[in-house]
């Protein structure tokens, strides 16, 4: 009786063990399939940059047009990078890009927040009309506006200036919308008690509200920075003085001048993505949360 019971016990134990073994095999298989897929897609997403980087590391003696293509350089060299720095005024273009991006970001933070504050926290006539008018600007494509804005920039003497690059993008409807949402979520008691203490509207805005909406300010800053940093069409139109070029435009010019020297072009491209990649790696979680908030603008 006792042995029989034992026997049954062992049998059920083994079958349970088998199925749990099968289960864990299936589970491991699923994980492997997932990682294979993830790596394959990663190869597609970053592969072109890796291929460009490999080309930038190839020495002058190596045939970069070899077929089949060689991913690993025969004798890796960094000499293409100084050559690229000599081929185009990288530092000048970097400075132009930084100036344009930083001022576009700062002006957006200030102007969008200022406009959003009364829209979120004050009652006055015409508020809804103004808000709807601001939002409606999102429906107007810049590709229609670029012609009159160019004429306006000529009239105002903004051609080939930093102001000409910055001002047309100094306020965005998305930014006003984002900051209004942020101000709406702050409890009203806070500004009322501040007003009791004798603070005026500007002090409430600047000292009480702005520090409370920092996450939205970061989102707005990153959104605007990426937009200004990568902008190509407007600089292409408003700049013809090469010393004012931003990095994308300068790099585009480089490909025209050195169309046969792919090592230099590749090295120049890699150099010009370093700044934005560094910022992305440090602040990646803000980039991704910002993209989600950006979607509401659709």
């Amino acid at each position: 009786m006792k042995t029989q019971h034992n026997k049954i016990g062992t049998e059920t134990h083994t079958s349970a063990q088998l199925s749990s073994l099968q289960k864990s095999i299936i589970k491991a298989g699923k994980i492997i399939v997932n990682y294979v897929l993830l790596l394959l897609i990663m190869a597609i997403m970053v592969g072109p940059f890796v291929w460009l980087f490999a080309t930038a590391l190839k020495s002058g003696n190596e045939n970069i047009f070899a077929y089949p293509p060689k991913f690993i350089p025969e004798s890796p060299t960094l000499s293409n990078f100084p050559a690229a720095l000599e081929a185009f005024p990288f530092w000048r273009y970097l400075m132009n890009s930084v100036i344009v991006a930083v001022f576009t970001v700062l002006l957006n933070i200030i102007f969008c927040s200022m406009a959003a504050y009364p829209l979120a926290r004050m009652k006055f006539r015409g508020k809804n009309v103004i808000f709807i008018l601001i939002l409606s600007t999102m429906m107007i494509p810049f590709q229609l506006l670029m012609i009159p804005v160019y004429i306006l920039a000529l009239d105002l003497g903004l051609k080939n200036t930093y102001a000409g690059l910055i001002l047309p993008h100094a306020t965005t409807a998305f930014g006003v919308f984002l900051m209004r949402q942020a101000f709406l979520s702050v409890p009203h008691e806070l500004d009322e008690s501040a007003r009791m203490d004798g603070a005026n509207s500007f002090q409430i805005f600047w000292r009480v509200l702005m520090p409370l909406v920092k996450p939205s300010i970061v989102t707005l800053a990153i959104f605007t920075f990426v937009m200004a940093w990568g902008d190509f069409l407007w600089p292409l139109i408003v700049l013809d003085d090469q010393s004012m070029y931003t990095l994308p435009l300068g790099l585009q010019k480089l490909t025209g001048l050195f169309s046969s020297n792919w090592r230099i072009i590749a090295a120049g491209s890699i150099l010009s993505v370093i700044p934005i990649m560094t910022i992305f790696i440090i602040l990646q979680r803000y980039f991704i949360s910002g993209a989600t908030k950006g979607a509401i603008k659709g």
């Binding site: 997403m45 590749a266 010009s272 990649m277 991704i288």
Partner: peptide, 21 residues
């Protein structure tokens, strides 16, 4: 994050990389 890299890269760099591909 890796899949997001093409989004933050400028069109010029992306275009150059793909011309080469």
């Amino acid at each position: 994050s890796a899949y997001y890299i093409p989004v933050v890269t400028s069109w010029v760099v992306a275009g150059i990389a793909w011309e080469w591909v």
